[in-house]
């Protein structure tokens, strides 16, 4: 086990400890979240959709659950639970889609668990969580039909997307839906900036749970991430200076 391995373990354990501690102190010193207009607009759009009897669609992307692209899909599953709660009273509850079988199965499970926790198990339909296509472009190819038939007015893209994400956002815009899009892929974030109503830049997609009220640990996570980001900035600056001065590491 080398130094790098030890450093990795140390960072992970430290991250976990900070997370637990901050979650414990969250009640006493609650985290103040900076305003993210995207999530404020999302809440308002969901409320409008519920009142108008229209549907909210949540897309978990074309990534898998066992790769590095699973992070945004898991964040999307948290957002699914919150969105299902918000649309519980609607005649047209939330519908979730994905481009991977494992993600589709996980989304069904998450939806059923959420509705069961809210005492609305009878409202679960397994067709509300579905896989539209096994490949990214085949997923996008079936999206227009689904948005049109389900009368979607809020189109949320929260998962791993490649270039096809821009097409998915544009399809929602053509349907006159409110489009909020976030992913982990940086080039796709640039595409979302041009095509979505409310793009999420950087790690804002991972903050969806905290902004939608998923719980104290989500808010504590953001605080810990901020702290570690600060540490990283200091390390980068110091390392750059040392490197410039010729001090080898």
């Amino acid at each position: 086990m080398g130094l790098r391995d030890l450093l990795g373990i140390g960072i992970l354990i430290g991250f976990a400890v900070l997370l637990i501690v901050r979650t414990g102190t969250e009640r006493r010193w609650p985290t103040t979240l900076r305003a993210l207009p995207a999530f404020d607009e999302l809440r308002r759009a969901i409320e409008r959709a519920v009142e108008a009897g229209q549907r909210v669609h949540l897309s978990l992307g074309t990534g898998t659950l066992i790769g590095s692209d699973s992070g945004p899909a898991l964040a999307g599953l948290t957002a699914l639970a919150q969105t299902a709660e918000l649309t519980l009273e609607s005649d047209r509850p939330v519908v979730v889609s994905s481009g991977d079988g494992a993600v589709a199965a996980a989304s069904q499970d998450a939806l059923r668990g959420t509705l069961g926790r809210l005492g609305a198990s009878d409202r679960f339909r397994w067709t509300r969580a579905r896989m539209l296509g096994p490949t990214p472009f085949s997923y996008v190819a079936t999206l227009p039909g689904m948005l049109d038939s389900e009368r979607v007015s809020v189109h949320v893209l929260l998962g791993h997307f490649g270039n096809e994400g821009a097409l998915a956002a544009d399809i929602g815009a053509r349907q006159r839906s409110f489009v909020l899009a976030g992913t982990d892929a940086v080039p796709t974030q640039a595409l979302f900036y041009a095509t979505a109503d409310q793009p999420l830049i950087g790690e804002e997609a991972f903050a969806a749970g905290a902004y939608l009220g998923a719980g104290g640990m989500h808010r504590a996570s953001l605080r810990v991430q901020d702290l570690l980001r600060l540490v990283l900035i200091i390390v980068i600056v110091v390392g750059t200076l040392l490197s410039t001065l010729g001090v080898g590491l």
Binding site: L12, F15, A16, L19, S68, G71, P72, L74, A75, D184, V186, G202, E203, A205, F206, A207, S221, V224, Q225, L228, R229
Partner: peptide
Amino acid sequence: GVALGATATGL
């Protein structure tokens, strides 16, 4: 930032 967010999600 994405890596931090993904790490937090996994943790």
